[in-house]
Computed example of a mutant assay.
Amino acid sequence: MYSRILKTATYYLIPVLLLFSVFILLRGHYKPGGGFVGGLIASIAFVMHSFANSVEKTIRLLRHHPFKLIPVGLIVSFVSAVAPLFLGQPVMTGLWYNEPVPIIGMIGSALFFDLGVYILVIGVTLTILFTISQSTK
């Protein structure tokens, strides 16, 4: 089904949704939000693109199949969780950089854990939805 209205709306909404998902990701280690919710919002943007165009064009836009994002997200989260062990602290202890970074604020291991979850959620969500979409054709 081709819809010029959906295609035009998608053209404007995808950047807004992706920017909002990054905002939610960065807000998450201080307030509610974070990697899971931000990843779902980013996934919605790509699902909307696949509705307006096709799954194949969305995968080309991503440049890689979303399945490849899953191990990347797991590795980033795992490394941020076990990094305190190398400093003699318990697993998942928050490590923080002393100086705030403009726009982002304080950078710590919680942000990297959220980033891993963000990447993982995008990979899992898009893999499931694209697999279902491609198998029903």
Rank of each mutant, 00 (worst) to 15 (best):
H65W: 13
K7L: 11
V72F: 12
L13T: 12
V76F: 12
N98W: 12
A52D: 01
L74A: 12
T93N: 06
S135P: 09
V55P: 00
I107V: 15
S50T: 01
I128T: 09
E56A: 07
L115D: 10
S135M: 08
R4T: 13
F46M: 10
G108F: 05
G73Q: 08
P100S: 04
R27T: 08
S3I: 06
L18S: 00
V121F: 15
F86P: 03
L18C: 02
P102I: 09
V124T: 09
V76R: 06
G116Q: 03
T10V: 03
P32L: 10
I59E: 00
G34D: 02
G108S: 10
G94E: 14
Y12M: 11
I132F: 14
Y2K: 13
R4C: 07
S133D: 06
L26G: 04
T8A: 14
I103H: 04
P32E: 12
P84Q: 12
K68E: 12
G105T: 05
S135D: 08
T136D: 06
F78W: 14
P71M: 13
T8Q: 11
P90F: 09
Y118H: 06
V124F: 15
N98C: 07
P84G: 10
I5W: 03
T8D: 13
A110M: 15
L115M: 11
Y2F: 13
F20R: 00
H29S: 08
T93L: 07
A81H: 12
F20L: 15
F112V: 06
V76L: 15
V121Q: 09
M48D: 03
T125G: 02
S135F: 12
L40E: 02
F86Q: 10
K68V: 14
Y118R: 00
K68N: 13
K137Y: 08
I132N: 05
L13F: 07
I70P: 11
G28L: 10
I44S: 04
H65F: 14
M92R: 06
Y30W: 02
L87W: 00
M92C: 11
P90Y: 06
P102F: 14
Y11R: 13
L85Y: 05
P90R: 02
